[in-house]
Nucleic acid binder design. Structure first.
Lengths: 376, 376
DNA sequence: GTTAGCACTCAATTATCCCGAGTGCTAACG
DNA sequence: CGTTAGCACTCGGGATAATTGAGTGCTAAC
């Protein structure tokens, strides 16, 4: 039989039927089911023959002799690449979602978190949002703000409007105007420079040139470093963990636990999010064994890079069992991606990228005011 | 038999044995086990008689005729209140933990998150940390920082060193020195005043007195409100979700899912954390059915309010099955609580600088309603 | 090439049995 | 009177056997 050939139309149809049914039922699909439920004018015997071929070619397999067939990673792959016709989400959803995102557009952390939340709700799978920290950003503002007699706030703003701050406590009093002067010098020095250029050396130089005592400068240097480090850090939001437990592949708690532990492991998340296989529409998809890691062989991941104003602000990945409703997941992520991009184009000046505040993962500052115009 | 009487020493011993064993094995405890394993010089028959009494009094119950006995909420309660002798954690742990917390002492959100994380690790149960947002804090610093030509950063610092910032974008250019002047005025005005006093009215007054155009002031007002609202907000950190799934009470995925969904529900968390029954040592404990909610009847919660310099910065709650290792959980939380308090005393000046007490300004409208008022 | 028919396979369900942990009760003992 | 040995009884759970039925591969006829 056909070995390395392309699948003919009929085989594709049957493969599609099998996968569709399996996605719906999560149970091995038999020839009779295909023949009856998806009426294709063929008897079960014929389907059986074709299924035998498909199995030989590695698109499906049977868990045991008297069970139906189950799609393999290869099967899902052709399904996703060649069979699946793009589905559209109900445009009415757009408004609903947009209102949810409305007041978060200015803050990437919250935005990505909200997107992950929505993606999870739309798909009924777990969604992981990762912000795209970027240490290569240039410093836009770098300020010291007096807080009280012996403490001050260090604030770093990069050109993508990420803001981090850190409280510095000193063991001596420092006059506010000294601080402000210092702030001015430091700020002028780094304005427009890449964040990575803020090194100890340069700050030493400032010390010399500006004549600021090194022991005073040091704690601030420290804090600045911390802030920059923080800005470059990705933040991870996991939404809808419990949703996955609703799916029948998690009958055993062990699997459930393994999964939860996996997606709480940062390195693993890194791996998950960065699994490649671009789908052409800006989405990336990795099916079962494809994604290298053994622990992940039972799961598929669909990821979307979210961009605002041309810069990537983060990634949202939907993680589910290989028997995942790819159609819906892809449609959902595509939908959100497009919506967001349209919004960011329209929103123009309104959609000023604001900061995500850095002290924690999860709950951050909200940005409401930025999109309000000043009305004289 | 003894009805409303206190339990005598022997009954207490037996109850303790039953609970200890049940905590360890998670299986109903029989009379033979108690007699043999915890040698108390009594035959199983005698134990049986005593157990019958204990059952009648409601301290234990048997799932079915031929199973051993299981402690009831009432049983656990006497165990916790009367039987449990305080245990101490290994002091060597202290250093390890302290280093973990070291660089988080200045930021309460991170600190509480880290505490919850450690609590979860120490106990092997899920821990929930909730920061204690406090709108009554006074404003310590309130600054506007120029970021670029048409955007500026609003920064609010309260006396417990909570910092929130917000980027404000303007549709016109604003000169840095104007901003700085404005900043100075606003800051002086609110320095030491309670955060709740920052109302629309007062800002209107500033506009008049300082002669700043209202339309310029407005977006900043908005941002300040947002920041204050955020500072007053509680943040929730859930750590070690998957740990609970390690315990045998979660054999069924359903239970696991219910639990996870429960602790991801904010209102539920509120309930969980605020369950009372003070234990005298600053800990609070709620056992099974005690905590009102039906969904929580299978779980127990031990909570500790964490204080730094006399002010409550948040709560860490350990949530586990009623068959929880109370001894260890209580010891762990007590340990952390003490450690933190000691640390905060030692570190004194570094942690919380001076408290500023000022007279209230005018009307005490809450941040929220005031926020509504602003919108044109 | 398609299809009806048939023998065969094997997981999953159900029924059945059996074991043993644990109980309550009774009677004997110090 | 409290304690204990002994015994009949209960009942959940584990093991085993029987049954079912969905699904297959193969063959032969259309």
């Amino acid at each position: 039989m056909a070995k390395n050939e392309e699948l003919d139309a009929r085989k594709l149809m049957i493969l599609k039927a099998i996968i569709d049914d399996y996605i719906e039922s999560s149970e091995p699909v038999g020839s009779r089911t295909v023949a009856k439920k998806y009426d294709m004018g063929l008897s079960s015997a014929t389907i059986r023959n074709e299924m035998a071929d498909l199995e030989e070619m590695g698109y499906i397999s049977s868990p045991h002799t008297s069970a139906g067939r189950v799609p393999s990673a290869k099967g899902y792959r052709t399904y996703v690449d060649k069979i699946l016709e793009p589905a559209a989400k109900d445009p009415a959803l757009a408004n609903e979602i947009l209102t949810k995102l409305e007041d978060k557009m200015s803050e990437y952390g919250k935005l990505i978190k909200a997107c992950a939340e929505i993606a999870s709700q739309l798909t009924n799978y777990t969604a992981i949002g990762v912000t795209h920290g970027n240490a290569k950003n240039s410093v836009k503002a770098l300020q010291l703000v007096p807080v009280d007699d012996n403490s001050a706030l260090v604030i770093v703003v990069t050109d993508d409007n990420s803001v981090k701050n850190k409280l510095v406590s000193l063991d001596r009093k420092i006059a506010p105007d000294v601080l402000i002067e210092m702030s001015g010098i430091i700020n002028r020095y780094f304005y427009g420079k890449p964040a990575s250029s803020v090194t100890l050396m340069t700050l030493n130089r400032i010390s010399e040139e500006a004549g600021i005592e090194r022991s005073i400068l040091l704690p601030f240097v420290d804090a600045i470093f911390d802030c920059i480090k923080e800005i470059g850090k990705d933040e991870i939001y996991t939404e809808g963990t419990s949703l996955l437990l609703r799916h029948p592949e998690f009958v055993s708690v062990e699997k459930a636990r393994n999964f939860i532990e996996m997606i709480q492991n940062e390195e693993m998340v890194e791996k998950i999010v960065n699994s490649s296989e671009d789908l052409g529409n800006g989405l990336t998809i990795s099916i079962g064994t494809e994604n290298g890691d053994d622990d992940m062989s039972d799961y598929s991941v669909v990821s979307a890079k979210f961009e605002v104003d041309g810069t990537c602000i983060g990634t949202v990945s939907v993680v589910g069992p290989t028997r995942m409703d790819y159609k819906n997941v892809i449609a959902s992520l595509e939908f959100m991606k497009k919506m967001l991009e349209k919004k960011s184009r329209e929103g123009g000046k309104k959609l000023i990228p604001e900061h995500f505040k850095g002290d924690d993962i999860g709950q951050d500052v909200s940005g409401e005011s930025a999109d309000k115009d000043i009305k004289p």
